[in-house]
Design a protein around this nucleic acid. Structure first.
Lengths: 112, 112
DNA sequence: AAGGCACCGTTCATCAAGTGAACGATATTA
DNA sequence: TAATATCGTTCACTTGATGAACGGTGCCTT
């Protein structure tokens, strides 16, 4: 499945490193090769990524996974979206930590 | 699978509400009935929870999922463990937000 | 007492998602 | 030229989660 999270992560990696193998990408994101392959195809299908055969000066054929204008736009939208989401996470995480702290202190005083 | 996370959450719920149905527990934790049933059995197997047939004054048979001393101890350990973990998450979340902020601002200035 | 209803824990067939070994194609090296 | 390395692609397999269905039990109404 291609979630927002991996759409974002993959677009981010590709933008800053268009010549990257699917294996390397899988390794960086901590997911399987199969999943990367699936997600990448979905991104291409959606028109967010375009794959090009790139022939460098040593006559070596390698692949380039380039973000299309639509892909760049999508990445920007996702960035704003995730900032909002992370800020909400920050709120709830702060509260969660507060509760855990209280609890740890309570338990401690019970044993004193 | 019985992860630390659900071991913690379930022990927490049971401690503050020992007469609770598996369905209600599933609903509170946002997981399926089958998973609750599986996890609960695992907790009993591990000796962290003891189930009792509780016969109240109206002769109604209901269940009590009580934490054993071992269960209470485990919950305390998990609480401290999760506090540490959440503090680490806090660190990385803060950094992540910082990066997202930078990025949003960069994109914005590019379009000005 | 009997029938109906509601809720309980338990089971398990079914589904969805992730995995990585294996493959053919291609580039590089010996 | 043969051997090796790396590429993207495929797909059989594993794993986890799901919730409908079931039998058991308490309770209410008739």
């Amino acid at each position: 499945m291609l979630t927002d999270e991996y759409r974002f992560k993959i677009l981010k990696e590709l933008q800053q490193d268009p010549d990257i193998s699917q294996r390397e990408l899988a390794s960086r994101l901590g997911i399987s090769l199969g999943k990367v392959n699936f997600c990448l195809k979905a991104l291409i299908e959606k028109g967010l990524v375009k794959v090009e055969n790139f022939r460098n000066n040593a006559n070596k054929v390698s692949y380039l996974y380039l973000l299309t204008p639509k892909g760049i736009e999508d990445r920007a939208i996702l960035t704003r979206h995730f900032l909002q989401k992370k800020l909400q996470e920050y709120e709830s995480l702060t509260q969660e930590i507060e509760e855990l702290r209280k609890e740890v202190l309570t338990k401690k005083s019970e044993n004193d």
